[in-house]
Computed example of a mutant assay.
Amino acid sequence: MVLKVKGSKQYRMKVVPDKPFSGVIAIAGVVFLLLITSAASYFAGQYQLRQSLERKTQEHTQALDRLTALQGENESLRMRVATAEQSLTIGEQASESVRAELVQKESQIAELKQEISFYRGVMAPEEGGERVSIGRFILSQTSDPKNYQYKLQVKQSAARRDIVKGSATFTVVGRQDGEPKSYPLKELSEQVDSESIQLRFKYFQNIEGELRLPEGFVPEGVELSLKSSGRKGFNIEQRYGWLVQES
């Protein structure tokens, strides 16, 4: 016989098995998942770095091959020049043509040497070297005698992995109608809309374009300034003469 107390609510009882290790297993699973994710991110970063260095190595090898070929052509041209100077049968015009070709080849060799020096600096930087530096700066003549192409390469040591942030200013100095005068790149190039060019890179950054000199202006050189956007960083001032390569 079951006695029921009038007015009280009856509750049903259920037996639940005790699992003391279920919480520990769940925590271990989360920790394992985090370790797997971190390892995957690390190896992905290492893979991208290896790919970048392999690409730079290939470019460096190609530049060396081009340099060797050009040096061979250069030596051949030197012999042709010597023969032309000693021979009385060759015309003055042909001799000047060979000389012009020789100058062009030497200019290409100088540019390739700069490229090789840059790639060596990226792949095998010197200990204690500057964090940020100018890899190369080139001015080239175009078909228009007032128009020039410029190429500026800024780099940092491959031993450093942080992102470089800052700005670069580019000023052409010379004389306007006999008086000293300077022009920021903004006033000479339609491709530039600010007096400072933003820098943001991990290994290197190329800055290139075209500029046009004003009438009556005789250029004497280029002043480059690189500054870090942080409190501690780099502040580089460099001046180059107005040395123009034939394109």
Rank of each mutant, 00 (worst) to 15 (best):
S41K: 08
T171E: 15
T89N: 07
E96D: 09
E208N: 13
A159W: 06
E195T: 15
D193T: 10
K14I: 13
V132Y: 02
P219F: 01
G230W: 00
V15K: 12
V31R: 08
K155M: 13
S182E: 15
D18R: 10
E59N: 10
V244G: 02
Y183L: 02
D162A: 12
A26Y: 03
Q86Y: 06
K14N: 10
E126M: 06
G216W: 04
I116A: 04
A63G: 09
M1Y: 06
L102N: 05
D162Y: 04
N147A: 14
S97W: 00
I197W: 05
G128V: 02
K227Y: 02
A100I: 02
K165D: 11
Q198H: 12
Q176A: 12
T57K: 11
G221D: 05
Q48H: 10
T57S: 14
K181N: 11
Q86I: 02
G121C: 01
V30S: 11
V2W: 08
F234E: 01
A40V: 06
I138R: 08
S41C: 00
R161M: 08
L139G: 03
S22M: 08
I109P: 04
K9C: 08
P219L: 05
I116V: 13
V218Y: 08
I207Y: 08
P145M: 01
D65G: 11
K19G: 02
L49A: 12
S189Q: 09
G241L: 08
Q198Y: 12
R239M: 04
V5Q: 07
L213R: 05
S247K: 15
Q191T: 11
R55Q: 14
E54M: 11
F32D: 01
G209P: 10
E54Y: 05
L199V: 08
R55T: 09
A28L: 15
V2E: 13
A26I: 10
A63N: 09
G91S: 15
I138C: 01
S182D: 12
A100S: 13
